[in-house]
Structures are given as C-alpha cells and as structure tokens.
Nucleic acid binder design. Structure first.
Length: 657
RNA sequence: GCCACAGUAGCUCAGUCGGUAGAGCGGCGCAUUCGUAAUGCGUAGGUCGUCGGUUCGAUUCCGACCUGUGGCUCCA
C-alpha cells in the first residue's frame, strides 16, 4: 500500500450524496462497486464508472473522499474516456501477445479515441496493425476483468523490471502518489485508471494509423511507435465518426484547392510557399478588400513596410534572440546582413518613430497586409495551413496606458464583426504569463486582470490558458468553430510591454515629459493562407456569392442564342458580377454538370424563350438535380446578385423572384 | 528535424516477378445544337520525382537526395 492509501483508513465514514438526494455513509476504502450493488443489481450491470464531485473513477478504486456520487453508464459521455482508456490497455494486451518484446509507453484516451506508444526495434507495418486489431477482438471476447492493485514503489519496480519506460515513470511518481497497476488477463500495466469492469465492454473500435512519437514528447528521447484508434459505445457512433473523418477528407483544402484551381505549390519554388491562382486570388482579394474597408471604418491607417531589413533591426526587437530558429538566414548586402522579416512589428515601430509623437496623436493604429517569412521545419508543413511564407493582416496599436482598455474593447467589436461575416462561431481564450517572460509579475497581473475585466464587462465567456502568453505580454486568442465543429486558430490580440522598451518608444504627455506608449499586436484572419485554407474546408469549396471566384455561368441552350448568352454575361460583368459563358460545343447537361462540379453559386440558362423575353432561368447551387427554374428578368437577377454580394450574405437567394 | 508511408500523362489511378508503359476523366480536332449533374468518333500528352549504383539492359532491384502524406515536436 502506498502512503496515501493507508492515510485515511480508520478516519471513519464517507458521506455520499446520490443524485436523488439520498445520503449513504460508507467506510473509507469501500469500492464503488459495493456501493452500487447496494443500490441495485440492474444499476451495477449498467455501471461503467462513477463520478464523485465531478471526478471520474472506476468501480474498483477504493473511495477515499465523499461527495456527490453519480453512477456513469454508457449513456454518459464521460464514460467514453474510461472505455477508451481501457481500449488502450486492450491494444497493449494484443500487441504484447504478438510482440512480447514491445516496451510499453503511454496509452491515454484522447478526443474520439485513444492511442498507445510502444518501444519496438522494428516499426509496425499495416499487416501488424491488422493482426493487432484481430488479436484485440480475442482479448475482448475473453472478457478479462480489469483488476486493480495498489503496490509499493519497490513492488512496482519489480513488476516492471523488464520495461525501462515504465521504470522511468515509476521513478517520476511523487512520493505521496498511490501507485496502482491494472491487469487484464495476461497484461499488466502501471496505471492510475479508471477502467471499465472487463475487456468485453470494448465492442466498437477501429485501429486507424500509426505514427512515430517521441518518448514523453521530447525530441531528444527515443522515438516510439504510436498506434491511433477510435472507440465508441455503439456501432452507430463508430459509423458516424468514420463518416466524420470522410467528411473532413472531402473538405480537404488541398483537394478542393486543386479541383477548383485555387492554389498550388511547386517544388521548384520551394516547399511551404503558396502560389495563388487567379480563382484563389479572387477569394483572397475579396477578403482583403472587405477587411480594408472594415478597419478603415475602425480607425486604422494603412502602411507598407519592406520584406527584408537590416539584421540590426531584429537585434533591437529581440527577434534574433527569441525567434532566431524561425528566421531565414541572413543575406549579404554590401557587407551588411539583411533578413526576410518574420513579423511586421519592427517596421511599424520604425514608422511610429519617424517623428516625435504627442499624446494627442494617440492612439495610432497601423495596419498592413504584411508578408512574412518564417523557417518552419519541413515535417510540419501542411497545404496552406502551415507554410513558410504568408501574409498577415497585421496591425499595431500604439496608445497610452489609459487607452488600452478602450482599445481592447474596440478590438472585440472588430473581431465580432469580422467573424460573423464568415459564419464562424468562436470561443475566447486568455493566455497568461509564461515561465520565460519579460516584465514584473505585478505588470503582468495588471495586464491580465485588465484583459479579463474587459471580457467580463462584455459578458464574453472565456477560458484561461495558464502560461500560454507570449514572452512579451498576455494575449487573447479567438478560436473559430467551423461548419463541422473543428476548431481553428483565429484572431489574436497581444499586449506588449517589451518592444516599446527595446525601441525606447516615447510620446510627449500633457505634462511635456516623455512617456512610454503601450503596444497592442493584433491579427484578425492571422495568415491569409491559413485563413483561406480554413475557409475552403469550412465552406467545403461552396463559397458564398461575395467570395465565389466565378459567381454566375451563363449557358446558351443552343448556338443560335450563344450571342445572347455572351451579351448577358457582359451585362452582368458590367454590373460588377463575375460572370462567364461556356461556349464549348457540348450538351447543356454536360456544361451544367461542369459548372456544378466547380461549385458555382448560379447557373443562368438562356434558350429561345429567355432570349426572346430578356430573362434567364437560374439554377441555384445546392438546389439539387432536375431544377426547372422560372425565368426571371435579367435586371431583376442582376439587382438581386448585387444585393447579395453587397450584404456578403452567407446563403444564396438571388435565383428566384 | 524525427518515425512511417508514398511519388507512373493536367487530374484520379492501373501495370511491369528487370526487356524504356496503360485506362478513365480533362485537353485538342471533327461531327452533333442539345432545356438543367457526363453525345459520339478521332487524336496529342509520360527521359515512370531527381541523381548515382548493380546489370547486356533499370520505371521495376539497391543507395542518396527532393517533394508529398499521417503523426511527434513546433506554430499564424
């Protein structure tokens, strides 16, 4: 028995409050299983785990504290984590049966499933994975109970003597921690739990893929082989999850980007460098135009700064000190070292310092679509989402300490206005002082309290990411929630007490003395590349009208009205609509299919009747097959298109009268 | 960067147990003039990612490198 296990024994009874308000008093050390059994046999059969004051534990772990006591069944989402954690053990059981030499690392439950890390001489093959999955079925069928034991440190050391990874874990455990093991059939693992009662609970699972993973996440340690899996209570849930994976795959911006001819990369240009094709450039330009209009309305001024700068600038800013491994190597210009800029702030600061500033000038808000270059390790590059060159919609606000609060509040308005246009829901995260940080604790505490204060004032819910701030100040992160519920990095607002110091920024106060301004860094979309990549997946390539690269395709039913179609397209274009014809000598059906595959919002068909009446028959994206639209006057259509574009509507409505 | 896997026509992929390659779609040409998700026929596209090695001969086997994919680490 570990010290904690014995500490409470003899201290009496625990009070357990059941959901119906009933109170049970049981001796310390009673197992939840016994408590549930005393409530009812049916409940015991359904029980997966229990929750005591919100903490989930299994039916075996002796109760050491009382509180609100709730039985978790398969219906409770929190019981899934327990199932998945047991799934990891079952996976390890299977792997050890087939590969007895495999060292066992960690095997936690994760979102949607679990993984387990193994130390093996030879990485697993696809055949291995299939064999493991099959073996897992055997373990499940064997119905091995999970047996918990609490052991002394010495005993734990003996039990895992042949597994250096586990020995290392044991050595790291705190002196007062209960050391427990769980055994299912032939497999024993050092584990805190909780687990389901026996292996038969794992019915609906699938091994997904393998990947290398550093032992304890440290790249200087050995690489283990990780096997990822998913597990659910019901076959429907498993099916739905696999379907979700398919859906995410269907939306993959790299696939859609190729299909819709939006962007590409080219090995000759270099990895992580995006080529924006005309259609992709339209999407980007529309976003930039919208944002430019928006921020001018919000009091920003546009600036431009160079892509490279004398390395000395980044010495002053501290980038060479703190960001060097992400910067491209210097280039020699007449004996002076220059670097591509990894951030836009130093340039904006240089503009601020181009003349003396008075408190009357503040706040100053400089905005730039600034292209930055950062060296990213080759393995992390990913489509448009992780690249080496990208354009930030970057802005810096220089203000007095008194103005910070108001500026943050303005930013929250701006963020909300921006994100709602794209149909993103979002959550807010406050990141606080990291271990390595500049500035005193008091300054940090003030800044964090100020940020939290503004959020509370505006009734914005937020979570705290303790220690997640930048080294120069705390920040607010906005996480976007996309159409299929995935989270993306969105806008960030960072307070900075570092750069004003380093650059000796100043303004003349009302007292005619020099004062230090506060700097805010903020981005809305962050990186145009990442944002557009995310948008492609959010919309599954079906852009709302204002963003659609081609908004209307005008199709003539037969060649004798081709001229009319051309004229209509020209008229729409003159009205500011991105409209084109498809003059190919193909059937109407064929050309419609082509337009559908390109996910165009509207298809305007012109036959003899429409040519005669000055109308178009408009099919709407998503209207399904066999559309038989009522023709509408061209002017009516154009006006509706213009309305829809101007309002940046998320849904299509211009096709009907 | 690390682990694993992959790279064949513009795209999606087949194939060659070593004798320099095929399909569908797309492109082009001709015919077709069609009323809402693929008209027919014909035709042109590939030093099989790159470089080296083995071999009489390499797209195929081996090695290195490049690029991509899934992760780890990191991140806008």
């Amino acid at each position: 028995m570990g010290p904690a296990a014995t500490a409470d024994v003899g201290s009496g009874l625990l009070r357990l409050t059941l959901p119906d308000g009933a109170v049970r008093e049981v001796p310390v050390g009673t197992s939840p299983r016994d408590v549930i059994a005393s409530i009812g046999a049916g409940l015991l059969r359904a029980a997966v785990a229990v929750e005591i004051d919100g903490v989930v534990q299994d039916l075996l772990t002796p109760l050491r504290a009382g509180g609100a006591f709730r039985v978790l069944t398969a219906k409770d989402p929190r019981s899934l984590d327990v199932l998945r954690h047991s799934g990891a053990h079952i996976l390890a059981t299977a792997v050890r049966r087939l590969r007895p030499d495999a060292q066992i690392g960690f095997g936690p439950a994760i979102e949607d499933g679990f993984y387990y890390d193994f130390g093996v001489a030879e990485p697993f093959t696809a055949d291995d994975i299939a064999a493991f999955e099959h073996e897992m079925q055997q373990v499940v069928a064997a119905r091995f109970p999970f047996v918990r034991e609490e052991v002394s440190r010495d005993e734990a050391g003996r039990r895992f003597a042949d597994d250096p990874l586990k020995l290392e874990r044991i050595a790291d455990l705190g002196a007062d921690e209960v050391i427990s093991t769980y055994t299912d059939g032939p497999f024993i693992d050092l584990c805190r739990g909780p687990h389901v009662p026996d292996t038969s609970y794992l019915k609906h699972f699938k091994l997904l893929h393998t990947a290398g993973a550093y032992w304890r996440g440290d790249e200087h340690r050995p690489m283990l082989q990780r096997i990822y899996a998913t597990a659910w209570w019901t076959p429907q849930d498993l099916e739905a999850y696999l379907h979700r994976i398919e859906e995410a795959k269907r939306r993959d911006h790299r696939t859609i980007g190729t299909q819709l001819d939006l962007f590409s990369t080219d090995a000759r240009v270099g990895p992580g460098l995006i080529l924006w094709h005309p259609r992709g450039a339209i999407v980007r330009t529309e976003i930039e135009s919208f944002e430019r209009e928006l921020i001018l309305r919000h009091g920003y001024e546009l600036v431009y700064t160079p892509h490279i700068a004398n390395e000395k600038l980044f010495e002053i800013s501290g980038h060479l000190e703190n960001f060097r491994e992400n910067m491209f190597a210097p280039m020699d210009v007449d004996g002076v070292s220059y670097r591509p800029k990894p951030m836009n702030c130093p340039g904006h600061i240089a503009i601020y310092q181009s003349r003396p500033r008075s408190y009357r000038d503040l706040p100053i808000r400089y905005a730039e679509f600034g292209t930055v270059y950062r060296y990213e390790r080759s393995g992390v590059l990913h489509g448009m989402l992780r690249v080496r060159g990208f354009t930030q919609d970057d802005a810096h606000v220089f203000c007095t300490p008194e103005q910070v609060r108001g500026e943050i509040a303005r930013l929250l308005d701006l963020v909300d206005e921006m994100l709602s246009v794209f149909g993103y829901a979002y959550t807010v995260e406050l990141s606080t002082k990291p271990a390595k940080a500049l500035g005193s604790d008091a300054v940090w505490a003030d800044a964090e309290a100020m940020l939290a204060g503004v959020l509370v004032e505006r009734a914005l819910a937020f979570t705290v990411d303790a220690g997640g701030g930048a080294f120069y100040g705390p920040k607010l992160d906005f996480k976007l929630v996309d159409a299929i519920g995935r989270k993306w990095q969105g806008p960030t607002v960072q307070l900075d007490f570092n750069l004003p110091e380093r650059f000796q920024l100043a303004y003349a106060g009302a007292d005619n003395a020099a004062h230090r301004p506060i700097m805010l860094h903020r981005v809305l979309v962050g990186s145009m590349e990442r944002f557009v990549g995310g948008l492609i997946e959010h919309y599954a390539g079906e852009f709302p009208l204002w963003l659609a690269p081609e908004q209307v395709r005008v199709l003539a039913v037969t060649d004798d009205v081709a001229d009319v179609a051309t004229a209509v397209a020209e008229r729409l274009r003159a009205g500011g609509v991105r409209a084109h014809t498809d003059p190919r000598s193909e059937t109407l059906q064929y050309r419609i299919r082509d337009a559908v595959m390109l996910k165009l919002p509207y298809i305007a068909v012109i036959g003899a009747r429409e040519a005669r009446d000055g109308t178009v028959a408009v099919s709407v994206r998503g209207g399904g097959e066999k559309q038989r639209p009522t023709p509408i006057p061209i002017d009516t259509f154009l006006a509706a298109l213009r309305r829809e574009t101007a309002s940046r509507a998320l849904t299509l409505s211009a096709g009907t009268l």
